[in-house]
């Protein structure tokens, strides 16, 4: 359940960003999570519901963009999106590749604040 640690970091970051932006109520928190990041979505959602309590994000939805793995194929000289993992190999020519170009992301993309005109 490392998702709880991640959820707590997310809430910490959201609180800091919202405070720096002058406050407000968070409506949505947008994440980008790669397929290799080792994060289980249901566990993260469950943990986030616990972590957000009593914070500016207490009513916030979690919106998650999942990113498939992209490797660079040395044989094709092309980045290739993998339809599934494993294997970490070019889906066109079968060449194994550990050159990961996408799929390890674990990022806070944006925060949507519910707020009236400034």
């Amino acid at each position: 359940m490392h998702e709880l640690s991640i959820a707590m970091r997310i809430v910490e970051m959201v609180e800091a960003e919202v405070a720096a932006a002058g406050g407000g109520t968070v409506q949505r928190v947008q994440l980008r999570i790669g397929e290799l990041a080792g994060v289980h979505e249901a566990a993260l959602r469950f943990a986030f519901e616990q972590a957000r309590e009593g914070t500016v994000a207490s009513a916030a939805d979690l919106s998650i963009v999942h990113l498939p793995v992209v490797v660079f194929c040395q044989r094709c000289q092309q980045p290739r999106e993998l339809p599934r993992i494993p294997p970490l190999a070019c889906p066109e020519c079968g060449q194994p590749s550990g050159e990961i170009r996408q799929g390890e992301e674990l990022e806070l993309e944006s925060i949507e604040l519910l707020e009236r005109a400034l």
Binding site: I6, I10, E17, S110, I111, E112, E115, A117
Partner: peptide, 18 residues
């Protein structure tokens, strides 16, 4: 901060959670 005005306001963060 992006859109200022009525409705939601988006804070672009784009930062690694860890």
């Amino acid at each position: 901060a992006a859109s200022v005005g009525e409705g939601p306001r988006i804070l672009e963060v784009r930062t690694k959670i860890l």
